[in-house]
Simulated scan of single mutants.
Amino acid sequence: MKTLIISAFLCLSVTILSAQEIMELDATKLTYAPNSSSVLQDGDSFTYTVSERFNGQFAEDPIAFMNAHFDIQKVIDASKNKNYDSYLVTFKSSNGYLQADFNNKGSLLKTYQNFNNVILPLALRKEMHNTYKGWTLVKTKYNAKTKGDLLVKALYRVKLENGNQRQNLKIDARDQGIGVAVN
Score class of each variant (00 low, 15 high):
63 I>S: 04
114 N>E: 12
141 K>N: 10
92 K>M: 10
96 G>D: 01
155 L>M: 15
4 L>I: 07
89 V>G: 00
56 G>Q: 03
65 F>H: 01
135 W>E: 02
112 Y>C: 04
143 N>T: 09
149 D>W: 12
117 N>Y: 06
90 T>R: 09
21 E>I: 15
18 S>Y: 12
68 A>T: 13
182 V>S: 08
25 L>N: 11
59 A>V: 00
13 S>W: 11
91 F>L: 05
142 Y>Q: 03
121 P>N: 04
79 S>N: 15
157 R>G: 06
159 K>C: 04
182 V>I: 12
49 T>S: 14
109 L>Q: 13
86 S>Q: 11
17 L>R: 09
103 N>A: 05
68 A>I: 10
102 F>K: 02
35 N>M: 07
103 N>I: 02
149 D>G: 14
20 Q>I: 14
175 D>Y: 10
82 K>G: 02
88 L>N: 04
123 A>F: 07
52 E>C: 02
131 T>K: 14
82 K>D: 07
143 N>W: 04
49 T>M: 05
149 D>Q: 15
120 L>P: 02
70 F>Y: 09
176 Q>E: 11
55 N>F: 14
182 V>E: 11
8 A>D: 05
78 A>H: 09
117 N>T: 05
54 F>D: 04
138 V>C: 06
132 Y>K: 01
123 A>R: 10
165 Q>L: 15
33 A>S: 15
124 L>N: 03
64 A>H: 09
154 A>C: 06
61 D>G: 02
102 F>T: 00
94 S>V: 09
29 K>H: 07
54 F>W: 11
176 Q>S: 13
131 T>P: 01
119 I>N: 12
18 S>F: 14
106 G>E: 05
137 L>A: 03
29 K>T: 08
158 V>M: 05
59 A>M: 01
65 F>R: 02
113 Q>S: 08
164 N>P: 09
21 E>M: 13
47 T>P: 01
146 T>S: 15
150 L>H: 11
165 Q>D: 15
148 G>Q: 11
107 S>F: 13
23 M>K: 15
63 I>Q: 02
3 T>Y: 14
17 L>N: 10
31 T>K: 11
71 D>H: 04
139 K>N: 11
104 N>F: 09
82 K>N: 09
63 I>E: 11
105 K>F: 06
7 S>E: 06
72 I>H: 07
54 F>R: 06
29 K>R: 08
135 W>R: 06
132 Y>E: 08
74 K>D: 07
91 F>A: 00
113 Q>D: 12
102 F>P: 00
8 A>M: 13
57 Q>R: 03
163 G>Y: 10
36 S>D: 14
142 Y>L: 07
73 Q>L: 08
79 S>I: 05
93 S>T: 02
1 M>E: 12
14 V>G: 06
96 G>K: 00
27 A>D: 14
14 V>I: 15
39 V>F: 12
100 A>T: 02
75 V>G: 00
140 T>H: 05
34 P>A: 06
20 Q>M: 14
183 N>K: 13
80 K>G: 03
58 F>R: 01
169 L>W: 02
150 L>V: 15
156 Y>T: 00
161 E>W: 01
106 G>W: 00
152 V>A: 08
106 G>L: 04
123 A>L: 07
101 D>H: 13
179 G>N: 07
121 P>V: 01
69 H>Q: 09
103 N>L: 01
148 G>D: 02
125 R>A: 09
90 T>E: 09
28 T>F: 14
18 S>N: 14
87 Y>S: 02
127 E>T: 13
104 N>L: 04
178 I>F: 04
49 T>D: 09
